[in-house]
Simulated assay, not measured.
Amino acid sequence: MHLLPTFPLRRWAAILLFSTLALPALAQSGNDQELFETQKRLSVGVTKFAEARTAVNAFISRRAAWVQKQEETPDQLTAEFVLPTRALGGLDSLAAGLGFVLENNLNAHNLTSRLQELKADEQDLQAQLALATLELRNPRLEEPKRQSLQEQAARYETRLRELRQRQQVVASHAGQAYVTLRLYDEVTFPTGNRKVSFVNMPGVEYGYLRLDNPKPGLSSRAYQGYAIKYMFTRGKSYFNLGVYKPLEKAEEPEFINELFVINFGQDFYPRNFGRGRRKFLNLYTSYQVGGFILNRNSDEDNEFIPNLNLGLGIELIKTRHILLDTKASYFVPLHDHSRDLRGILGQASFNFVF
């Protein structure tokens, strides 16, 4: 009578080899991120890549429990590592200080429920193995059936080892986070192309132009008006289209009674003033290039004059959905009589995600 299942020697050897090699590898594998209670994906664009890379490497060597993968190129760093959950705040602070955070996603899982599922699967397999073992004790069992049951029992044993190993891995990952960190030089995307992030942010703009040398009968001392401002990159790049009217009017035929303006503009954040990451009071420089149609009281002398504006501005409020900013620039018509039309241009605008 067979009291225990009798497995062929080669089959036992295969099971032993799997348990000594494959399962410990599973315990150290970070590919199955669901074995961790927290997964975090972080992407950061930086202006000083070499310094940022050194800071990230120092943080990983000091705080990471172990590193799954780390790849570096002259302008990118990709790292996957395990971090104690309590250290995630320090990682966020480091990222915010390095540059512009392009992505910061956090997912959490309940490991208790996962362990309960694995324990239930283990109990089901134990019951199936016990049933197969009981059938193998039957002395009247035919040889083909016995071999089939032995192979089935071997599969149950292997799956039980995998489940128990998996439970150990899940339990050992309590209080840990699997982090995928990508660091980019700010002038590149992950594809290596120029970093251009498009947005759809229409808005309105108020403008006040005060001329340096207004001439009586020719121009008012100041013009004001409204424009449509359409921002299409986070850069920020935009177009504006509007009309300025004189504060003081005159009846002379040569008097300029309207400026119809159209411009393309870009704003740039200084490297040492936060790079526009704050929600309030971001400093930036700007330029606008375009032109305006100069209308006079006499309809016969309308003309188009190109212009260039250079300025300095402050974003008063900046969120993911709205932007309120103001700036001052010097309005320079590129014209033979630019001295008569140049001056200080103040603008305030409100844009929103559409």
Rank of each mutant, 00 (worst) to 15 (best):
M1H: 07
M1F: 00
F7G: 01
R11M: 06
L16P: 04
F18I: 10
L21D: 06
G30K: 11
R53G: 05
S61E: 13
V67D: 04
Q70H: 12
E72T: 15
E80S: 15
V82Y: 00
P84S: 15
G99P: 10
L102W: 03
T112K: 09
S113L: 14
L118R: 02
A120M: 13
D121E: 15
E122Y: 08
D124C: 06
A127T: 09
R137S: 12
N138G: 12
E142H: 10
Q147H: 04
E162N: 09
R166V: 08
Q167N: 12
Q167H: 04
G175D: 12
T188C: 06
T188K: 11
G192F: 05
N193S: 03
V199C: 00
D212L: 13
N213H: 12
K215Q: 15
A222Y: 05
Y238Q: 08
N240W: 06
L241F: 13
V243D: 02
K245Y: 03
E251Y: 07
F255D: 05
F255W: 07
V261R: 01
Q266F: 08
Y269K: 08
R271I: 14
Y284E: 14
Q288P: 06
F292Q: 12
F292N: 06
I293V: 14
N297W: 07
S298C: 03
D299R: 14
P306N: 08
G311M: 08
G313C: 04
R320F: 13
Y330R: 08
H335E: 11
D336I: 06
G346E: 03
Q347Y: 00
Q347K: 12
N351F: 07
